[in-house]
Structure formats: C-alpha cells, structure tokens
C-alpha cells in the first residue's frame, strides 16, 4: 500500500466520523420514534429497535391535530416561498438587465439587510402585524419573512451567468424586456429558481422565531411550536412521542432535499463566491 493510499484511508476515517456525528441525531430520532418509552430508557444503544412499535405515531395522530398543524406549516411555507421567489426574480432582473441611477447603492442597501439580525426588526414587526389585526394568524407569521434579500442575491448571481449575446439576440428580434425575462431568462435559470424556492420553503418550514412571536392559539400552531410542547431541558416525559413528531417535522425537508440535492448544493456552492 502506498503512503498516499494509506493517507487517503485515514482521511476517509476522519470524514466518516464527522459524518456519523452529523447523522447520528437523525438516526437517533428515527429509531426512538419506533420504541416504547420504557424501551427507549432501557435500550438506549439500540439503533434498530428490537421491538418496533407504532404507538408513538398513533399517539401523535390521535392526540395532536397533526394534520392541521402540518397544513398550517405548509400554508406559511408556500406563501413565503412563492412570494419570495416571484419578488426575487423580478428584483434580480431589474438589477441585472436595467441601468438606472442609484442602482449600485440600492443593491448594496438591499443585500446588506442580510446582515441585520432579526432582533432588530422583531418588535416593530410584531407591532405592525398586531395593528394589521394579523396577530395570531398564519399570514401574520408569513409576512415578516418576506423581506429577505438572499433570493435576490442568489438569483442575480445566476442571471449574471447568462451570456450577453443571448439577450442581445432576443432584443434584436424586438422582444419586450418582460418577454425576454419570461421567455429566455427564466427558462435558462430555472434550476436556480427552483432550488431557491425549495430553500425558501424549507427555511420557512423550519422557522421558529416568527411563529413563536405571533401565534398564541393551538389551532394555529406550526410543527416547530407543536414540538416545543414536548420540551424541557431534561427532555420531557413523552420523549418517544416527541421523537415521532420530530421525524414527521423533518420528513418533508429531508425528502425535498434528497430529491433536489444537486440543485440545492450547486446553488450554495456558488453563493460564497461574490
């Protein structure tokens, strides 16, 4: 065995250990969601339950209005994703295809908002949403999430990769600028738009801050809030049920990720390079 091969094997061991640490919590949640509470205590090390049970899931579906909770989460995530993708595409196009006074400053200002932490906007947004009589509504949770510049940034990055000659060829055929956006730009960067949309959806699905601020009544709870009911720092008493809710919560984002991982990863790979 050459030293290079030996080194590579060693590095794989390191990389795989990191992988185990990262994936263990997912496996742990999945495994315990199929254990009875007493099994969970007595056979902690057992990743594949010796006596698998569905009782936690049955409990979730009978005691918790999980369908409603899931729909609430879905509603907010869809609104946030669709609206953000639409506005991001339009704005990114304005910043790419048009020349206007103050363009660079405006772009800089908008992109800088990525650096504004949510605690700065938290109180005024809460007050605004209350004044709009949207406190404790799903829409009230979605609205503050819409002011997000990452989409504008990511989609503009991808629009910039379109060769100028393609746009010029279309312009020579007397296409309107909106027509160029609709018929040429959007189809060309569809993968980027799709992955940005999925990223928005997943982020909103996992959102915790705005739901916790805005929502009071249980009928409006999202998955994050439902899960919180099972938590205390010692772990709570319905631990295995909590694991079942956890599994249900991560099912959708993980599924989406596994299907679209190629696009999502390539979108993030390019995000660091400005």
């Amino acid at each position: 065995m050459s030293p290079d091969t030996r080194r590579e094997i060693f590095l794989h061991i390191v990389l795989l250990s990191v992988l185990c640490v990262l994936l263990f919590p997912l496996a742990f949640a999945l495994s315990n969601s199929f254990k009875t509470l007493s099994d969970a205590y007595t056979s902690v090390g057992e990743l594949i339950p010796a006596r698998p049970t569905l009782e936690n899931y049955i409990h979730v579906f009978s005691r918790l209005d999980i369908a409603r909770i899931t729909l609430n989460t879905l509603f907010i995530a869809v609104i946030a994703a669709v609206f953000k993708v639409a506005t991001s595409v339009l704005s990114a196009y304005a910043f790419t295809a048009y020349e206007f006074k103050g363009k660079n400053i405006l772009y800089f200002v908008i992109i800088s908002t990525i650096f504004i932490p949510f605690n700065v906007t938290m109180l005024p947004n809460y007050l605004t949403i209350s004044r709009m009589r949207l406190a404790d509504t799903l829409l009230g949770v979605a609205l503050p999430q819409l002011a997000d510049a990452t989409g504008i940034f990511l989609i503009r990055q991808s629009m910039k990769t379109i060769p100028k000659s393609i746009i010029e060829a279309a312009a020579m055929e007397n296409k309107s600028r909106f027509g160029i956006l609709r018929d040429i730009v959007i189809p060309l960067i569809r993968p980027a738009i799709m992955s940005v949309g999925i990223i928005f959806f997943i982020n909103s699905w996992n959102e915790y801050v705005w739901p916790v601020l805005m929502l009071k009544s249980r009928s409006n709870f999202t998955l994050s809030l439902a899960l919180q009911m099972y938590i205390s720092s010692e772990g709570g008493t319905e631990f295995t049920v909590a694991m079942a809710v956890s599994v249900l919560t991560m099912l959708v984002p993980l599924g989406l990720y596994l299907v679209f991982q190629k696009f999502i990863i390539s979108t993030f790979t390019s995000s660091g390079v400005k």
């Binding site: 990262l22 994936l23 919590p25 997912l26 949640a29 997943i202 699905w205 996992n206 915790y208 998955l223 994050s224 899960l227 919180q228 938590i231 956890s246 919560t249 991560m250 984002p253 993980l254 989406l256 990720y257 991982q261 999502i264 990863i265 993030f268």
Partner: peptide, 10 residues
C-alpha cells in the same frame, strides 16, 4: 448537508 435542512427545534 442533510442536518442543515432539519429544524433547529428538532
């Protein structure tokens, strides 16, 4: 990347 798509509450 997998954990990155999972909720921090989870």
């Amino acid at each position: 990347f997998m954990p990155s798509v999972v909720s921090l509450v989870v």
